[in-house]
C-alpha cells in the first residue's frame, strides 16, 4: 500500500482562457479506492482524461503506475483499464465477442481469452447469455459486463468515469461489490461519481470545485472536518462556498 499508483503535481489543463483543471496535486496509493467528486464541469473528466493519455496537460507533472504521462503513454496504456460515462460495449456484438475483442486488442492469447471468458461469465452468472447480443441485456448487466471487460487484462489501475449513471440502487450496490473484489486483488480504483452514497464506499475522496481540489481525505475525516452527518452535506457546503 505504500507505493503510489498515481501522483500528480500541479497538473493543469487550459482550453484557451478557460482553466479546466487548475494545478491539482494528489497521490493515490496502490490498491486504494479513490473517489473523485465534483459538480458537472468541475474538471473531473478533464483530469481523468489527462491521466489516461487522452489529453495532453498544459503544465504540471503526473506519473501513472510509475510512468510519466508525457513521454510514457504507451507503457501506461498497457497497465490501465478505462470505463467511460457512455456505455462502451458494442451492442451488435454478443457478450462473448465483446470479451474476445477487448481481450484481443489488449494482446491476450487465445487460451487466456478462453479462460477469462469462462471465468467472467461464471462470476457475473451470464453463462446462459454468452451468445446473446449485448443490446438485449438489461442496463445493469451491461454496466457490470463493461466493468469486467475494463479489467480483463488485469490492469494495475482502473479509471471509472461515472460508471453507475442511470442504474438502480440495487444494481449499483452489486456494481460496487465488483469494485471491492478488484480492489481486494490489489487493483487501484480511480472513480468519479455524482452519487454521495457511493462516495462513502471509497477509501479516500477528493472534491473538486472550479478546477481546484477543495477537500481530500477519508469520508469519515471529511465529515468531521465539515461538521456534517453525511457526504451530501459536505459536498453542498463546498459547492455553495463557491457562489
Amino acid at each position: 500500500m505504500t507505493q503510489a499508483a498515481i501522483t500528480t503535481t500541479a497538473l493543469t489543463k487550459r482550453f484557451g482562457n478557460f482553466i479546466a483543471t487548475n494545478a491539482i496535486s494528489f497521490d493515490v496509493a496502490q490498491g486504494e479506492i479513490f473517489g473523485f467528486l465534483g459538480a458537472n464541469g468541475a474538471g473531473k473528466t478533464t483530469a481523468m482524461r489527462m491521466l489516461c493519455g487522452l489529453l495532453r496537460p498544459s503544465s504540471g507533472e503526473a506519473r501513472v503506475a510509475g510512468f510519466d504521462i508525457y513521454t510514457q503513454t504507451e507503457q501506461i496504456k498497457q497497465r490501465i483499464g478505462y470505463m467511460s460515462q457512455k456505455f462502451s460495449l458494442y451492442e451488435d456484438l454478443t457478450v462473448k465477442e465483446n470479451i474476445r475483442f477487448y481481450g484481443g486488442i489488449y494482446g491476450l492469447s487465445n487460451s487466456q481469452i478462453r479462460e477469462k471468458t469462462a471465468d467472467l461469465l461464471q462470476r457475473l452468472s451470464l453463462e446462459q447469455e454468452g451468445n446473446m447480443l449485448v443490446r438485449a441485456l438489461p442496463l445493469g448487466w451491461k454496466q457490470k459486463l463493461a466493468f469486467s471487460i475494463a479489467v480483463i487484462h488485469d490492469p494495475s489501475i482502473v479509471f471509472l468515469d461515472e460508471p453507475t449513471g442511470g442504474v438502480d440502487p440495487i444494481t449499483r450496490r452489486q456494481f460496487w461489490d465488483l469494485i471491492y473484489e478488484s480492489a481486494a486483488k490489489g487493483v487501484t480504483i480511480f472513480v468519479t461519481t455524482h452519487y454521495m452514497d457511493e462516495a462513502e464506499y471509497c477509501n479516500r475522496i477528493s472534491i473538486m470545485v472550479d478546477g481546484k481540489i477543495k477537500a481530500l481525505d477519508t469520508p469519515a475525516a471529511l465529515k468531521k472536518q465539515f461538521g456534517a452527518d453525511t457526504m451530501n452535506e459536505v459536498f453542498l457546503q463546498l459547492a455553495r462556498a463557491k457562489s
Binding site: Y82, M83, Q85, K86, S88, L89, Y90, I105
Partner: peptide, 13 residues
C-alpha cells in the same frame, strides 16, 4: 458517438 472510440484510444492499440 458511441464512446467506444475513447476506449480504443485508451487501449494500447
Amino acid at each position: 458517438e458511441l464512446g467506444t472510440m475513447e476506449i480504443l484510444l485508451v487501449s494500447p492499440l
